[in-house]
Design a binder for these strands. Structure first.
Lengths: 215, 215
DNA sequence: CCCATTTGTGCGTTATAGCGCACAGTGCTA
DNA sequence: TAGCACTGTGCGCTATAACGCACAAATGGG
């Protein structure tokens, strides 16, 4: 039985637990037989897309959420609200620093870096994995970004969105250092260490971790 | 035949066209038979999850992308790289401004706002839709954010991640205005206008809307 | 306690997914 | 032209999804 089916099994159990529905009730709400629901939950069957659609409809959740990791529960985010300190200094030979303020979040599929570039410095960036998108916002100073061979100029407060999966570069044309925020989004299912095999967004959903309270 | 299967049919055709693969080649790459691939493309069959997994593996795309709208192609982002100007002024009675620098992007499921708060001002925020997560980064000044009844203090350069689907508030305890970036992520399948029925991200599934589930 | 109802599982049957294979159509080459 | 390789489709067979039903165990009420 494949990993994807294990994930769906777990997801269905979670949904059912959350609603406190019996298999019987779930069958009535989803239009999928009780026996089949049981098979799916035990990972004994690989349901068709049509069946999964019925299930999602019955639970009134987005279809894609059947394949997602446990969403950040309303309480969890607040409970684990983390104050990110100003990042420690970290630089490279090109006069460029790029320090994570919010590390890669596999659920949201993004990270936010604080970058700095010394006056006159140029920094080349190798392509990220396919599908990676960056949004830059200049906080202080001047910044130019080369995308598709074209240098684009950004002043403080200005931003630029571009596909980061091809070579690009940064340079600081100003007299002083520049500081910017770099929001990097990775395609769903990939992360900083991108793999090329399809992954269930669950990532490390090893289950068993919440056998108690629902949401 | 259901709409979901139509969507997957289209998605498979798109993937195959993009790679310029024949059914035969695709069968070899994915391990799914040529005949079955043909059935799926013609919407004559509702594939199981296991089969879809094989297909995604063969095309080396994230599993979830089979259900997503046309992803931004690697080239498109660069071609459509947009320079975002510093936002025009826009304020409210509480001394708070929140102006989009990058408007909501349905593919990435996020938006980035530039917020300002006058010295001493307090601004309450109603809960966003369930699952919405915010990341704040203070660019200039001091900012405090109330999450779960607890005020957290942030200085310039510091950040905070929190679930935004419950009441929260901002206030500026400093002597001067504060400026911050607000990165808002919406759960996949939802956006600024959230829906609770299962939707293929590609389209508008018509379904009775019963938002009492709170998911 | 007994009884009725509910719960989840297993089984056999039905429906359909998934397959290998044959075949008609197409394009290329000698 | 004929021969060959490739392409997508249809068909019949096999495997499995999905089902209804029976049943043992659990639960709750009188």
């Amino acid at each position: 039985m494949q990993e994807i089916s294990q994930h769906i099994a777990e997801r269905l159990r979670t949904l059912r637990r959350a609603e406190a529905w019996s298999l019987d009730r779930t069958a009535r709400e989803t239009g999928v037989s009780k026996a089949m629901l049981g098979q799916i939950e035990r990972g004994e069957s690989s349901p068709t897309v049509a069946t999964l659609w019925k299930i999602a409809s019955g639970f009134r959740v987005p279809f894609s959420s059947l394949f997602e990791p446990e969403a950040v529960a309303p309480g969890d985010g607040a409970a684990s609200a983390e104050r990110q300190a100003a990042p420690a200094f970290e630089g490279d030979a090109a006069g460029m620093t790029a320090v994570p303020l919010f590390p890669f979040d596999p659920v949201l599929g993004f990270e936010l870096l604080v970058g700095t570039l010394a006056a006159g410095a140029v920094s080349e960036s190798a392509p990220h994995a396919p599908g990676v998108v960056e949004h830059l916002v200049v906080v202080e100073g001047e910044l130019e970004v080369r995308v598709n061979g074209v240098w684009r100029h950004l002043s403080a407060g200005e931003g630029l969105r571009f596909a980061a999966d091809r070579p690009h570069a940064y340079r600081n044309p100003g007299q002083g250092a520049t500081r910017f925020h770099d929001v990097i989004h990775y395609p769903c299912g990939t992360g900083v260490t991108s793999g090329v095999t399809p992954v269930v967004d669950a990532g490390e959903a090893s289950a068993g971790s919440d056998s108690s309270s629902g949401r």
